[in-house]
Simulated assay, not measured.
Amino acid sequence: MTPVANAAAPVDRRAPEESGAPIDCVLFDLDGVVYHGPEPISGAVEGINFLHEQSIPVNYVTNNATRTAGVVAEHISTLGINTTPAEVTTSAQVLAGRLAERFGTGALIYLVGATGLATALESEGLTLTHNLDDGPVAIAQGLDPDITYQAIVRACEAITSGIEWWATNPDYSMVGPRSRVPGNGAFIDMLSKLTGAQPTVVGKPSPHMMEFAARRIGAQRPLMVGDRLDTDIEGGNSAGFETALVLTGVHDIHDALRARPGLRPTYILPSLRGLPKLIDGEDTYGSAGGALGSAGCRIVDGQLCLDDSAHSGAAIVQDALRLAWEAMDRGDNVAPGNLPRRIHD
């Protein structure tokens, strides 16, 4: 298994009403949450601009190491959400920070990656090389869409030399225009099989990614919002943050039902349009401390049963999931029953 920097077991999180502080920062994944390619996802502009109006800081936490924070900020701004580079945290920035902490300014780093990673490393005062004979202290590896066979061979040689191997993110695949395409994780897997080595990975689901972003803001009670349980939600949970699974991307409510404890979200959001209710703590939305087995949901013969009049609401879905998780953690089998896969605002 690929080691993850600063990995930690998921921590117990208190219910929001017990935490003693309001949500004071929202961290977002991007693809599947804020946008699909060049287009904003329905509800994203309204939800994030609401946070701006309430002066609640935001930060965009992305495993994509090929683009600089400035390019990402410009992309988000074109959607109608004013964004500065300081509001973007990339896995390249996190990796550069870790290497600078470990080896110091001026350390020589063997680069396997694109412009986003090179820029982040140089901004931390690190020196880059593509030549193993220069004596680099570590390898920094991120996705390089233009990588050649010769560069792969040189990467194998660098890893086999025994210097530390660090990587930006473990995402195995990405959505291309016509099919799924290899992500950085696919190259990690290939290089690992060729060399027998494993890198330390700093991107999601590493909690360090979330902690890095929240620390930049000085947040006391961050909320992590994402569409993937195994990166966004797991990473937020591992950092001890509350998490929200937004249903505009990869994973749905049935995926959340089957998730192991470390991948279970605190909240369900149909889209980012639901952020005002969540942030304001309206009773109609529900909370992490909601009563299990409320009048709107129960387990009957191993099946979740939601009242027809309420089964499409976020609050009742959250209560149903908590009821099911409690039963499953006791060893019971719980089927979805009439639990919907997705709900709407």
Rank of each mutant, 00 (worst) to 15 (best):
T2K: 07
V4I: 06
A5W: 15
N6W: 12
A7E: 14
V11R: 12
R14K: 06
S19N: 14
A21V: 13
D24W: 12
D24K: 10
C25A: 15
V26T: 05
F28W: 09
F28N: 06
V34R: 03
V34T: 11
V45R: 10
E46M: 14
G47Q: 06
N49R: 11
P57V: 01
N59M: 04
N63V: 01
N64S: 08
A65M: 08
V71S: 14
V72N: 04
A73S: 10
N82L: 12
E87Q: 13
T89M: 00
T90I: 01
T90H: 01
A92C: 05
L95E: 02
R98E: 14
A100G: 06
A100W: 03
F103V: 08
T105Y: 12
G106R: 11
G106D: 14
A107F: 06
L108W: 11
L111S: 10
L111R: 13
S123R: 14
E124C: 14
L128T: 14
A138L: 09
A140W: 07
D144R: 10
D146R: 12
T148G: 05
Q150D: 15
I152D: 00
I152E: 03
T160E: 13
T160V: 04
T160F: 03
E164F: 02
E164Q: 11
W165S: 03
W166E: 00
N169C: 10
M174K: 15
V175M: 14
G183F: 04
N184R: 08
G185V: 07
D189C: 13
V202N: 11
G203I: 09
S206L: 02
E211W: 09
I217K: 11
I217L: 12
Q220P: 00
L223H: 13
L223S: 09
L223I: 05
G226C: 04
D227H: 08
D227R: 06
R228I: 03
D230G: 06
D232S: 04
D232M: 05
I233H: 01
I233Q: 01
S238R: 12
A239S: 10
G249R: 02
H251D: 15
D252F: 13
H254Y: 09
D255F: 06
A256L: 05
R260S: 15
P261H: 06
Y267N: 07
L275V: 10
L275Y: 09
P276W: 03
L278I: 10
D280Q: 15
D280W: 04
E282H: 14
D283S: 08
T284G: 12
T284P: 00
A291N: 04
A291I: 02
S294C: 13
S294D: 12
A295F: 10
A295G: 14
R298E: 03
I299R: 09
V300E: 05
V300R: 10
Q303G: 00
L304P: 02
C305E: 11
D307I: 01
D307V: 03
H311S: 03
S312P: 00
A314D: 01
A320F: 05
R322G: 00
A324L: 02
A327D: 01
M328P: 09
D329W: 11
V334E: 08
N338D: 08
N338G: 05
P340T: 05
P340Q: 02
R341N: 12
R341D: 13
R342K: 14
